[in-house]
Structure formats: structure tokens, C-alpha cells
Write a protein that binds this DNA or RNA. Structure first.
Lengths: 225, 225
DNA sequence: GAGATATGTTCACATAACTTTCACAAGGAA
DNA sequence: TTCCTTGTGAAAGTTATGTGAACATATCTC
């Protein structure tokens, strides 16, 4: 997977540095903007920005304003940083097309998890139907076919398979799977993944072998093509 | 591998000198700070600090405080020095993002080993695919290919080969291998390395010869290219 | 809102895979 | 040769994963 470019907009440089650090560590490329105007300039200059993290409270042009302007031209995912949850409630009243709200102070780890989840979603919607090694995944219909036959998968099973198919050939640790397929607020047993993998494999028949176990590490989807 | 810069923070100058000595000998560049404020100044002045060793008990600003401040802006690895293990337990209750705890008195040798292990971890994610002399190592897929054919390696075997390939042409003592490939809390027989080397060699076929024995010393990976 | 149904999670145990140790063989150094 | 290090195969020990069932939670139906 290529490195996605993320634009961080905040007037406080410390906050920008913090986010930059964490996101860079998580393998994203980060651009920083110190105010709304700069943010708009950077966004319209660089067509490859995959996601924007936007502080609400900024001098001159606030996050709300920046968001409205961008939304006139683009559906790029936007995460809003708000200082109080009351701000958040207020904003949610308007339909600004904001993908997530994160209230300060937040755990950077959590933010990264949300960023990954959103990007996954927005990447997913690019190709609605994918077919690999006899497995056809129709995201719009939320339906999977194996050798042309429809297979009944539960919601989680579908999402798990989707994540596997989006990351073919890549070794995925349980932690990573949890972060991307489960909600960020799930803190249960990672072994639940094993159970889901078991069900997935059995529902997939002989294609179940595509889900390889990487002992001591996690799982990997590999259709061998 | 370039010399990594390490910041040692302790109010006792004897302790700083001791650490400085050992780390310098192990080929690190060392900066010293005598208190928390100085530490913060040095850290934010010098963007190249790769790791911080931090004493908990210090006058004015304690290690706990320093850590929290740094964590607001940076994910640099931090090793905490604690006087009693009770302190350690207490600290672990908070999620400060500390990478390691070392309880005084400690063996400097052990500390150096931990430093190396942590730095290796944080460096590891640089090049995802490496190929040398017909051996292709795909870290993302956690898979090794020899002459294009996939080879099944266990977790430890993979890590061992990874370490060898990251240190091509360098003679590696068993001690060093243990410190870097095994966990620091492994105190078993170093001969387990021999067994793993044997398995690796046999799984690598004629490429097994790349792992040379350095009699009386250890091993070396050398693809002769 | 109660009961039924489907889905998701946890648990305990079986199984499989891996790691370490051991004992002895083989090989290099003095 | 003699001492010490390394190679090797197999046994013993350890840990991770597979699996079925119980339990919990959410969803649907009436």
C-alpha cells in the first residue's frame, strides 16, 4: 500500500508536531498548515491529499469555514479536532460532511486508528467489486460470491474478509486487524479474530486456504496469483 | 549504520558518566542533561535524538514530568530508570508511552542491549523488501524467497535471517545475536542460536553457505557480492 | 416489551508448531 | 594429541493456534 498523504491543520505548532510524529510513524506522509488559508492553498495545490485533520478553533479562518470551502469542491475525508464535546455537538447539528470528530485531549493512537479506518473506507469505495482467485466481493451489495455462488457472511465476517482482500499478500498482526476491522474502542480479547477466521475459512470452502496463518505473527490473505 | 544520538538524563553526574562511557563504547553518541528542564531544552533543540534514558527521581522536575512533556510532542523512545521496582509498578499504571523500565542497580551491559533492541525496532520499518544474492526478504509479507521460490521459515528463523541480512558482512557474536533477536529477558543457552542457524542453513539450500561460522566468535552473513 | 434469532465474544481444551535443551559427533586450534 | 568450539538429530518443553460450546449482546418479530 502506498503512503497516504495527510494534511494537518492547526494553529498550534506543538499540536502539529505531535500529530506529524505519530502519523509519520504509522507510515503516512504529513503536510502541515498553520491556518485556514494556508490549508486551502496546500489542499488545492496538491491533488493527492487523502485526508485532512482540522482543528476547529483557529484565528482568522476557523475549521468550520475551511471545511465548508473544501466541501464545495471535494469529498476528501475530514477529521475535526474539537476542544470540548459541546463544540462537537454543536457542529454535528450542521451537515458539513465531516467524517469524524475527535475531542481534545485525545490519544494519538486512537486518532491513528480512526485515520486508518477512514482511509480504508474511502479507498474501499473506489472499486466496488473486486474479484480474486474465484472470490468476488461486491461491496455495494455487501455480498460475497465464491465461484459464482453467493455465500452468507455476517457483518464482521464480511468486514474481515474485506480487510484481508484489501491487503493481499501483507502479513497482518492481530493488533492491526483489531485496529482496522474492529472499532477503536474495542479492548477485548484478540482471540475473537481467530474465531472469525475459523468461521470465514469454513464458509469459504476450499478457498479458505487463502487465509494463511503466520505463526507467532498473525494472518495473511494470499490467493497465490 | 550511523551513530545514534542518545540523551541521558540524571541528576547524579556519576551515573551520567557511567552511562556515557558504556554507550560511547557501544558506538552511540551521548548527550547529558542534569535535570528535567535542561533535558527538555536539549531535546527540543536537537531534532536528531534517537532515544532518551531518563531517571525517575530528580529534583525540580522528575522523570515522570519530563516524560509527559516530551510525549505531548514526540514519540521518541524513552527508557526509564527507577530505583525500586515498586516505583516501576506505580509508573506502569499510567500509560506514559515508556518503552522500557530498568531498575537500579542495573548492569550497563543489559541497558546497552535494551537500547540496541529498541533502536533496531524503530529503525526496522525502513526498507520493506531486500534482496541479496538470490535471497529476497519481504518484511511486509513476512516471507522469504530463495531464487524466487517461497521458503517457509518460523518466526525466530525469520527474525534471525532478518538480523543477518541487516548486518551483512559484519561478524556477530552470539551475545549480540541474543540481544538483538531474542528478548532481553532471555537468559537461556546461547547454543539455541546454533540450532536455529542449522535449521536456517538447511532451509536455505545451497544459499545456506551465506551464513558463515566465525570460529570462536560467532556468525556472519556474507553473500559474497 | 418479551421472546426468538442471529451475531459476536469468551473460554477451555486439544492440537499443532515452534523453541530449547541435551548428548554425542565432528572439526579447528595449539 | 588434547582441549575447546561447533554441527547435528532427537527429546523435552513451551507457546500459539484451532475448535466447539457456552455465554453475552444486538436485532428482529410479534
Amino acid at each position: 500500500m502506498e503512503r497516504s498523504k495527510i494534511l494537518v491543520v492547526d494553529d498550534e505548532s506543538r499540536m502539529r508536531k505531535l500529530l506529524n510524529d505519530f502519523l509519520t510513524r504509522s507510515n503516512f506522509t504529513v503536510l502541515e498548515a498553520g491556518d485556514g488559508e494556508e490549508a486551502l492553498d496546500m489542499f488545492f495545490d496538491d491533488k493527492e491529499i487523502a485526508l485532512i485533520i482540522l482543528d476547529v478553533m483557529m484565528p482568522k479562518m476557523d475549521g468550520y469555514e475551511v471545511c465548508r470551502t473544501i466541501r464545495k469542491y471535494s469529498q476528501v475525508p475530514i477529521i475535526m479536532l474539537t476542544a470540548k464535546s459541546s463544540e462537537r455537538d454543536e457542529l454535528q447539528g450542521f451537515d458539513l460532511g465531516i467524517d469524524e470528530y475527535v475531542t481534545k485531549p485525545f490519544s494519538p493512537k486512537l486518532l491513528v486508528a480512526r485515520v486508518e479506518a477512514i482511509l480504508r473506507r474511502s479507498r474501499a469505495s473506489q472499486a466496488d467489486v473486486v474479484e480474486v482467485g474465484g472470490i468476488r466481493m461486491d461491496r455495494a451489495a455487501h455480498q460475497v460470491y465464491i465461484d459464482g455462488e453467493p455465500v452468507e457472511l455476517s457483518y464482521k465476517e464480511f468486514e474481515l474478509l474485506e480487510y484481508f482482500m484489501d491487503n493481499q499478500g501483507i502479513a497482518l498482526s492481530r493488533e492491526k486487524i483489531l485496529n482496522n476491522v474492529w472499532n477503536y474502542d474495542y479492548f477485548g480479547d484478540a482471540r475473537t479474530i481467530d474465531t472469525h477466521v475459523k468461521k470465514l475459512r469454513s464458509k469459504m470452502g476450499d478457498k479458505g486456504e487463502y487465509i494463511k496463518t503466520i505463526w507467532g505473527m498473525g494472518y495473511k490473505f494470499d490467493a497465490g496469483v
